[in-house]
Computed example of a mutant assay.
Amino acid sequence: MLIALVLDQDENIVPIIDGTILRIYDTESGTYQDYPNPALHLKEGRRGAVLRFAQEKGATVFASPPKTFCELSYAKAQENHIQFCQLHGQIKFDTFQELLNHGKVLIKNHLPAQEIVPS
């Protein structure tokens, strides 16, 4: 499974528009590939651009701290059958890996409405 995560410079998983790195993590091999966050240089459609890029790279799951998606990007993610690792705040990537490996990160088809920001 390929999971998309957006990271800041300290490797904290953050909402799509807050990080500088888009990481595609392969849970089968334990490897990842980093890309510059496509949202950095856009004024609008930033969340959607990151979602599209992640999907082009094969990601089917998105690590999602609160406020990762807006209404439009969330609807698009659902339309494209993206699943979500709901995070309750920022955590470091290595902590996420450990939690995932121990089955403590759930993969869901939906996120709570209060975690989605208005478009």
Rank of each mutant, 00 (worst) to 15 (best):
V61F: 05
F69D: 07
H41G: 15
L51K: 04
R23Y: 05
D10A: 15
V14D: 04
N12Y: 14
P65K: 11
Y25H: 10
K67S: 13
N12T: 03
P38K: 10
R23F: 06
T60A: 09
V6P: 04
N37I: 08
Y25K: 03
P66C: 02
L40Q: 07
A4K: 00
N37P: 13
G45D: 07
T68Q: 09
G48F: 00
K76L: 12
I21V: 13
I21G: 09
D26H: 12
A75M: 05
L51H: 05
T68W: 05
P15E: 07
K76T: 14
G45C: 04
D26C: 10
L7D: 03
S29L: 02
T27F: 00
R52P: 04
F62A: 13
E28T: 14
V6A: 08
L42P: 10
A54V: 01
N12I: 06
R47Q: 13
L40N: 01
N12K: 15
T68E: 09
T31S: 09
G19C: 04
L40T: 00
F69S: 07
D34V: 04
G58P: 08
E44A: 07
P15S: 14
A49H: 06
Y32C: 06
L51M: 09
I21W: 14
Y32F: 12
S29I: 00
E44Y: 15
V61C: 15
Q78I: 11
P66L: 05
A49C: 13
S29K: 03
G58Q: 04
A4W: 01
A75N: 05
A77D: 02
R23I: 07
I17C: 15
F69M: 10
I16T: 02
E44Q: 12
G19S: 08
A75H: 04
L40G: 01
G19K: 03
Q9W: 08
E28S: 13
V61W: 03
R52F: 07
K76G: 00
E28K: 10
I16H: 05
Y35T: 01
V14S: 09
T31L: 08
I21F: 14
S73F: 03
D18C: 13
L22M: 02
E71T: 07
I24F: 01
N37R: 02
D8F: 00
S64C: 15
